[in-house]
Design a protein around this nucleic acid. Structure first.
Length: 264
DNA sequence: CTCAGTGTTCAGTG
DNA sequence: TCACTGAACACTGA
């Protein structure tokens, strides 16, 4: 479930393994669907022989910064992840594999193939990155600026949180966690939120994202009070840490876990 | 065998 | 123009 914290974890793995190193060999099989408007050959050409100067991220978008253009963008889709290794066979579901002179490899694995690989000269200045809203880890708006962004929106609050042009990197579980910790019913209309609720959303969003990133996205290290640990599966008996019943219901087209006792 | 789920985009409806 | 729904995408695992 790659949301912002999982993608940031991928960025850290890639940066530690690749930064300052020259790409010796590239494996990138032809793949019409998973390549966003470019050929596998173009991806190989962009990477082979280039030195990785850094790995950037905004929301769920991640890119390799190279010592020449274009750069290479990766979106993890629903099941994408990076795996480092010292050698040996490529892992299963590998769609991109970079080999470095020191024998290390970085593989992008994506079993369900919803991930995307693309090229861009200036990722931040062009779509899809340029269309994204603020990244809650890198640039959380002030309370006043956050309130102004919310004021301009319509529809229910779950939809707002999932909208990548509002807050980049929020996915289904973070949206539900924010609403639970902010005590807001996911079906509520954005226009009906009061100032305290909007402030609570901003605060919980920041805390949840920073906490998950600090835990390196290892969910067993997330606070035990989080809804996260209770939301998976649609167990009719599911309860929060303090014994309140969960419900699962489709809101904004997505399975939503929430707690009617707590969220108003 | 069926089907939920995960992120995103797109076509269609109101 | 906007809000919203449902389908499509590919695949695993229950």
């Amino acid at each position: 479930m790659p949301e912002l914290p999982e993608v940031e974890r991928g960025r850290e793995i890639a940066e530690r393994l690749c930064r300052g190193r020259r790409v010796e060999r590239v494996h990138c099989p032809p793949d019409e669907i998973g390549l966003a408007g470019c050929s596998a050959a173009a991806v190989r050409r962009a990477l082979r022989g280039a030195t990785v100067t850094g790995v950037g991220r905004h929301g769920k978008q991640l890119w390799f910064e190279l010592d020449r253009r274009p750069w290479v963008l990766v979106h993890f889709g629903m099941t994408g992840a990076f795996h480092g290794r010292d050698g040996g066979p490529r892992p299963k579901w590998c769609r991109l594999d970079l080999a470095f002179a020191d024998g290390r490899h970085l593989a992008f694995c994506d079993p369900r193939r919803f991930g995307r690989i693309g090229l861009a000269d200036e990722p931040r200045a062009e779509p899809p990155v340029s269309r994204l809203g603020f990244d809650p880890l890198l640039e959380m708006p002030s309370p006043a600026a956050f309130a102004r962004l919310v004021e301009r929106r319509r529809g229910n609050v779950k939809r707002l949180l999932l909208d990548q042009t509002f807050a980049a990197g929020v996915g289904n579980w973070i949206a539900d966690e924010v609403l639970y910790q902010s005590k807001i019913d996911p079906r509520r209309d954005v226009e009906d939120l009061d100032d305290a609720e909007v402030r609570a959303m901003r605060r919980t969003l920041g805390t949840i994202v920073r906490t998950a990133v600090a835990a390196k996205s290892v969910s067993s290290r997330f606070p035990r009070t989080w809804l996260f640990h209770r939301r998976w599966g649609k167990d009719a008996e599911a309860r929060t840490h303090d014994g309140r019943p969960l419900v699962h219901e489709t809101v904004a087209g997505r399975t939503t876990a929430w707690v009617p006792d707590v969220q108003r």
